[in-house]
Nucleic acid binder design. Structure first.
Lengths: 215, 215
DNA sequence: TACAATATCCCCACTTTTGGTGATATTTTT
DNA sequence: AAAAATATCACCAAAAGTGGGGATATTGTA
C-alpha cells in the first residue's frame, strides 16, 4: 500500500514539480494538491493522506494555522513543513501546532524523499540548525513541564479533585457544588491538602501545585 | 585550528577506538579521555575542549549529572551524548541538562564524525526517532513556556511587584512589609490587578499569572 | 476482626480578603 | 498648563477563609 501524500503550496510550479518528484518513488502516491488552505479540512478529509507537505507562507490563512486545524481533527496525519526561512518563531509555532518535520525549500529536490521516508519511519526530519534551535528552546523550559515527574504528596483522589478546583480559582462553596459535597467537607479536604503540601493559604496551594505540576 | 574533543566513557576499549577513529580526521584533536566523571569539571577545565563526547551510563555519577555541572561552569562547550538506549527519560534529561546532540553507540563508527561536524556547524545531531520524541514533547508543553509571549495586561511596575508577591503566597500584610507600603495600598494595587486581569480572587490571580507566564 | 485511612459533615472564634467609595500627592502624557 | 495615570492611604460592611477542635460511616488493610 503506497504512502498517500497531499501537497499544500500556493505556487503552482512548486506543487507540480514536487508531485513529479514524488512520483519517481513508486511507494508514494500524491492524492491531493492544493493552492490554499482555506478549505484544508475538507480537502484533507476527502483525500485522507498519510503525510501532508505544508508550505508555511500561504495566502488567506497561514500554513501554521492550517496545521493546528488539521491536527486537531486528524491527529494521526504527519505534517512536514516546508519554508524558505527558518526563523525561530515559525519553527516553534509549527512544532507547537503539530508539525512533525521541517524542511527548507532550497533542499526540497535533494532531501524531500528522504524526509518523507524518515517521517513514515517514525522520525522527524529537520535541518541540523533547526534541531539545535529546538534543543536550545527545550533547555530554557522549566524542569517540571519538560520532564521532572510531579513530586508525590500522597494526596488522595478526592483531595486531588479538590486541589484541581482550587487551582482553577473556585471558592469553597463553588467546589462543594461542583463535587456535590458540603462546604465543611471541602474545608476538611483543604485542611489536609495544607498539611500534605506544607502550606497555609490558597495562593500557596495554587502556586505550588502549578509550579510542581501536581495538577 | 583543530577542533578539541574530550571523551568520557568508562569502557577503555571504546575510549581508545573512539580516539583512534577521531584521529583519522585531521581537523580533530582528542585532548582528553576519561573513564569517569567524578572530576569532570577539573578534567574539562584542564583540557578545555570544544566538544565533549559523554557516555550516559557511567559509574559513580551519571553522565547527565556531569553535563549539568559542566554546562553550568562552561556553557559554551558542546556536548554530544552517546548511549546504547534511547529511552525517553534519558533523552530528555540530557537535553534539559544541556546536551546539544545525541548519538547511539551502535552508529558510533559510521556517524560519529558527521555528528561532531554537525555540532561544530551549529547543528544538533540526533537520530530521527529521537527528533520525533523531542518534537512530540515540545507539543505537549503549554504555549506560554514554549513560545507564546506573555500577554500584556498593562500592569504598572508597582502592580507587577505586588503581583509577584501574591504569586509567591504572601498575604496583604506581608506584601506591605515587603514593599514598604501600607496595607490599604496593597489592597488598592490588588484591586487594580483584579480589574486588569478580569479576575476576582487571589487564587485566580496566581493561576492566571502562572499559566500565562506573566510572572 | 481490629486498625488505619478516607470521605463526609459540624461548631466556634478569629483572621483575611473583598467591594465600594472615597482622598491626596506625584508623575506622565497630552 | 491641563488632563490622565500612578502610588499612596483610609473606612465600613460583608464575604470568605483559617485553626482547632470534634463526629460518623465506609473502605481497605494488617
Amino acid at each position: 500500500m503506497p504512502l498517500r501524500i497531499a501537497i499544500f503550496d500556493d505556487n503552482k510550479n512548486i506543487r507540480e514539480s514536487i508531485a513529479m518528484l514524488l512520483q519517481t518513488e513508486k511507494d508514494f502516491e500524491v492524492v491531493g494538491s492544493f493552492a490554499h488552505v482555506l478549505d484544508c479540512l475538507e480537502d484533507v478529509t476527502q483525500c485522507s493522506p498519510d503525510v501532508i507537505l505544508m508550505d508555511i507562507e500561504m495566502p488567506g490563512m497561514t500554513g501554521i494555522e492550517a496545521v493546528k486545524i488539521i491536527k486537531h481533527e486528524l491527529p494521526d496525519v504527519l505534517i512536514l513543513m516546508q519554508t524558505v526561512f527558518e526563523d525561530d518563531d515559525n519553527v516553534f509555532d509549527s512544532i507547537c501546532a503539530g508539525a512533525s518535520g521541517y524542511i527548507l525549500k532550497n533542499f526540497l529536490n535533494t532531501k524531500l524523499i528522504d524526509a518523507i521516508k524518515e517521517l513514515e519511519f517514525g522520525g522527524s526530519p529537520m535541518s541540523p540548525s533547526i534541531a539545535r534551535k529546538v534543543l536550545t528552546k527545550m533547555q530554557q523550559i522549566p524542569q517540571h513541564v519538560s520532564n521532572m515527574p510531579a513530586p508525590d504528596y500522597k494526596l488522595t483522589a478526592r483531595e486531588k479533585e479538590v486541589l484541581a478546583c482550587v487551582v482553577n480559582g473556585l471558592s469553597y462553596k463553588m467546589i462543594g457544588d461542583q463535587l456535590f459535597i458540603g462546604y465543611e467537607t471541602v474545608r476538611s479536604h483543604i485542611k489536609h491538602i495544607y498539611e500534605k503540601l506544607h502550606v497555609a493559604s490558597l495562593t500557596e496551594v495554587v502556586h505550588k501545585a502549578m509550579k510542581e505540576g501536581i495538577v
